[in-house]
Design a protein around this nucleic acid. Sequence first.
DNA 1: CTTAGTGCAAAGCTTTTGCACTGCA
DNA 2: TGCAGTGCAAAAGCTTTGCACTAAG
Lengths: 150, 150
Amino acid sequence: MTKEQSYFKKILKDHGLKVTNQRIAVLEIFKEHSGVHLSVEEIYDFVKKDYPEIGLATVYRTVQLLSELELIDKVNLDDGYVRYEIGVMDGEKSHHHHHLICLSCGEVFAFGEDMLDSLEEHIDKTLGFKVVDHQVKLFGYCKNCRENEN
Amino acid sequence: MTKEQSYFKKILKDHGLKVTNQRIAVLEIFKEHSGVHLSVEEIYDFVKKDYPEIGLATVYRTVQLLSELELIDKVNLDDGYVRYEIGVMDGEKSHHHHHLICLSCGEVFAFGEDMLDSLEEHIDKTLGFKVVDHQVKLFGYCKNCRENEN
DNA sequence: CTTAGTGCAAAGCTTTTGCACTGCA
DNA sequence: TGCAGTGCAAAAGCTTTGCACTAAG
């Protein structure tokens, strides 16, 4: 058993939740696709390879659970699906919903979150609005696509 | 006829589209609710007061049209509805998808866009990603809610 | 007159829910 | 063994689409 699995089981137990094969299997898919933004349908298709009898509703419920436990992040890329990505795998601080979306190839890149600190401070001072979470989407053209067009 | 209506009619004609009462009526609702983020259902309810025989499908089609003509902005506040707001009514530069969403009362405030310029410049330099549009959502607690809690 | 636009109803989509069954603790 | 969790199918809710009809140009 990997250390992520042990950690996951502990969290489930701490919340009085049961450890099931389905939950382990879904988390495993997120681990195998770190950095990728998966729709529930995509997760379902992946999980079925290892666990063919799983139901779509279970995947929906598990994904909601993982999101509430803050083990995965919810991302809306406005493509008609709600997407999720694993958030705490890499050593660095968890990057929170910051995405570069290429309008040409559709690729999604991530970038760090510290760049917004001064902005949030300014908003607090001028508007009295206390920011506790943020979601930033930047649309444009990635390096590859720009090079291919030239 | 207001100057916004003349402008709208010109745009429709320039695109080879017909000027219909329904389209005028929907635009009128956006004008009356400048700064508000309306769902299609809400727009439908408002329009029906002036134009009871309008159909929901027409509102959906009109809103898509207005969005393509860049007369309104599409906003997704993750509440299950796609929302729209009029974008070019005030004299200032059009504020592009920048929202402060209060987690307590649900109120949505807007803020200016120039604050992101340095961030985008940095991204271009370091990642080679050219940003052409952006969408920023900041979640937190607004002044009112913070004062009421104390 | 021609055909884009409309209204209605049906269908399409993702997501949620009810309920009997299963399996973890 | 008891009850949380699951699987299936049905339902829900937003949005789109097909089609006959209406009205703008």
